[in-house]
Structure formats: C-alpha cells, structure tokens
Design a protein around this nucleic acid. Structure first.
Length: 373
DNA sequence: AAGCCGGGGTC
DNA sequence: GACCCAGGCTT
C-alpha cells in the first residue's frame, strides 16, 4: 500500500485511485477541523458567493471581509444591485482597488436581470460570459453554491497543485496552466465539490504558503513529492519583478466659500465613475511655472479660473506598475463658470464629498483639508 | 504569451 | 521596498 502512495516519485500522468482517495479524505478531514469562519461561508446564495469571489480577485481575505458584509447589506439581491446607481456601488468599493471589478459586477447584475430573470445562471459557459467572471470565478461560484463539478485554480491552489505535482517547468506558462487545470479536474470528488474546492484554497492559504510552508502541520504532507524532495522553495518559482515607472502628478483643491471643486472621471479614463480633485500629470517642461501650468489645466477641464496658493502635502502612491508622487495644491477660485463636459465639474461641501466615491488619493486629500478647517 | 489593470496589505 | 493576493481581459 505504501508503494502506491509513494510521494517521492511524482506521477506524470494521473494519480492512482488510492492516492486520490487518501488525498480527498485527508484534505476534507483537515478542512472540517480548521476552516476559517468567513462571512461568505455562511451562505449558499450564488449571488453572495459571486460578490465575495469578485471582491477576492487579487485581494486578500482579510481586506475583503468588512467590504463584503457592507456590500450585501446595501445590495442584498441581484435585483437590488442591478437597480442601484453605479456611484453607490463604487462608493461601497472605495479602497478595495481595481474598480473595474465593481463596474463589471454592476453591469453583470443588470445582464442577469435582463436575460435570466434575475436568477444567477447555472450553466458554466453562461456564467463565464458575464463581465468580470473568468474560469476560476465561474467554477468557484457554481461549485460552492451548488456543488456542481467544476475545478478551480487561483493563487492558493496554483501553488498547492504545483507542489503536489512537483511541477518543475514554468507553471505560469500555457502548458503549465493546462497541466494544473487538468490536475484540478482529476482531483474533484463526486460530492461536496464546494467544500473540497474551498479546502484546497484553505490549505494553500494556511499551510502550503509561498515561503516556509508548514509541512509539519500538513494533512497531505506524506502525499507531497515536493516535500519529499525538499523543493518547497523552488516550486513554484518566484515571479519575476516588474519595473516600476515613476510619475509626478498634482491635484488641485480649489476652494470657494465652504465648497471645493471636484470632477468625475469619465468612462475610459482612470478611476472611471469616481470623483476626484482636478488632477494632472506633471510634464515639467516648457517655460511656464507649475502654478501656471496647473491653473491652465484646471480652467481647461472645469471652466474655473484659479490662482494657485501653495502645495500643502505630497502623497506617495503605488498603483500597479506605477509609483506616483502626488503634490496636493490649494487654490482659490477667481471666476469662470462650471464647464458642461465629460468631467462633470461640481462644487461640493465636505458633507457631500463624504458621500461621493473618491479615488484613494482624493480621499486622503479630503481628510487632510477637513482636518485643516 | 505577455502585459495591463493605474491596488492594497504585509513584513 | 519586496512580496503577495480566492484574476480578468486585451493584444
């Protein structure tokens, strides 16, 4: 029997029935005893699970918890979400990042209402066709909500399965992805697919960690060829570093009486649908001063003539591959009228500002000026 | 296959 | 700063 489960020689084709049986039993037994009590594990509602899965895309569990409960409280059903203003949806997403997810989720809810009577579809291809839902998210929702037999592959299972296969080639390549998805499919049990998929992720998250995996606590350690060969640090190989690009930008806080000037980023622009102080990248070229350059840009975008006062803060902000240094300027209005253009410039009070969805940097600046008053 | 999305948290 | 994260989408 031990020879069947010999973990030092990884199987190259498919795992034996004995290996599969042992793996599934050990994994599920561990999961029952150690699963975290996460908010989205209290429901089998496909909609709630959908929301959690989208929030969890490239975002850590601890970050999502508070957002999830707040979002479901405000938008308890697909119909409620579909009927909501995009601004409201974005306000609930503020601080979570990758705001395209929120707009796609909102749009997808409207598709479900229009084309599926408000009922989340059960066919994997239909689910995958919804905006913001790819192979992982579709499989996760349908397996967790309905125990439908779909495999999953994401950050945790990617690492876990690569190690269970002792996969020495590049697991991120096309061939590697194909191999891991195929393995994920082979692993699927007949029943309790949702618990099984969550158990795979949970083991990856809590035990089979990127660095210094807790193999001595791992319920499937004796089935793991990577552990047998001591290759945990090599499998999977670390991702290559990205080269960051430095950007200098300025945001202008124009004050008039007890209001400030804000704009709404139009569709196609960064932070689409979210409000911001007029903000511009600084070229640092030409004969004009920064003050003149900014005043000209504010006037062009908002119609308001301003005089720059002073830079009162510098924010360092990293987003994707950019490193942004953002100077926050104070300015006073000198006339002009609000332009009627795609940027929808508006004067708002601090109370109104509080209700609008703001970019992270805009929210920080809003807090700064609130504290200055 | 690679790069982008203009994020955010952690250590 | 390096590293990581319950990915999706475009080219």
């Amino acid at each position: 029997m031990l020879s069947v489960l010999n973990s030092s020689r990884p199987f190259t084709d498919s795992p034996s029935p004995a290996w599969l049986k042992s793996f599934r039993e050990r994994l599920l037994r561990w999961f029952v005893a150690h699963r975290r009590d996460l908010p989205w594990r209290k429901t089998r509602d496909p909609y709630a699970i959908w929301v959690s899965e989208v929030m969890l895309q490239q975002t850590q569990v601890a970050t999502v918890e508070a957002y999830f409960s707040r979002f479901l409280a405000s938008f308890p059903t697909i119909a409620a979400l579909a009927a909501a203003d995009e601004q409201q949806v974005l306000r609930h997403w503020e601080g979570l990042g990758y705001y395209r997810r929120a707009r796609q989720l909102h749009r997808a809810a409207q598709v479900v209402v229009a084309e599926h009577g408000g009922v989340f579809p059960r066919e994997i291809d239909v689910v995958r066709s919804l905006p913001g839902i790819g192979r992982y998210t579709a499989g996760a929702i349908l397996s967790i909500a309905h125990d439908d037999p779909h495999p999953i592959l994401e950050a945790n299972t990617f690492r876990l399965l690569a190690r269970l296969l002792a996969y020495r080639d590049d697991p991120r390549s096309n061939a590697g992805q194909t191999r891991l998805w195929s393995f994920a499919e082979q692993l699927l049990p007949k029943r309790d697919v949702g618990a099984f998929n969550q158990a795979l992720m949970e083991l990856g998250a809590l035990i089979c960690t990127p660095r210094a995996p807790r193999c001595d606590e791992c319920s499937v350690a004796q089935l793991c060829p990577t552990r047998a060969q001591g290759l945990q640090a090599e499998i999977p190989p670390p991702v290559r570093k990205v080269a960051f690009e430095s950007v200098r930008a300025a945001a202008v806080v124009v004050e008039k009486d007890d209001t400030v000037l804000v704009v709404c980023n139009p569709a196609g622009e960064r932070w689409a649908g979210m409000w911001d102080f007029p903000r511009f990248e600084l070229r640092g070229e030409g004969p004009t001063t920064v003050e003149q350059e900014l005043a000209a840009q504010v006037a062009e975008r908002t119609g308001i003539k301003v005089r720059l006062q002073r830079s009162f803060a510098t924010l360092k902000h990293g987003v994707t591959r950019y490193r942004i240094t953002l100077d926050a300027w104070l300015a006073t209005a000198r006339g002009g009228r609000l332009a009627r253009n795609a940027w929808s410039p508006r004067w708002v009070t601090m109370d109104e500002l509080h209700e609008l969805p703001l970019s992270t940097t805009a929210r920080k600046i809003a807090k700064l000026i609130a504290a200055m008053r």
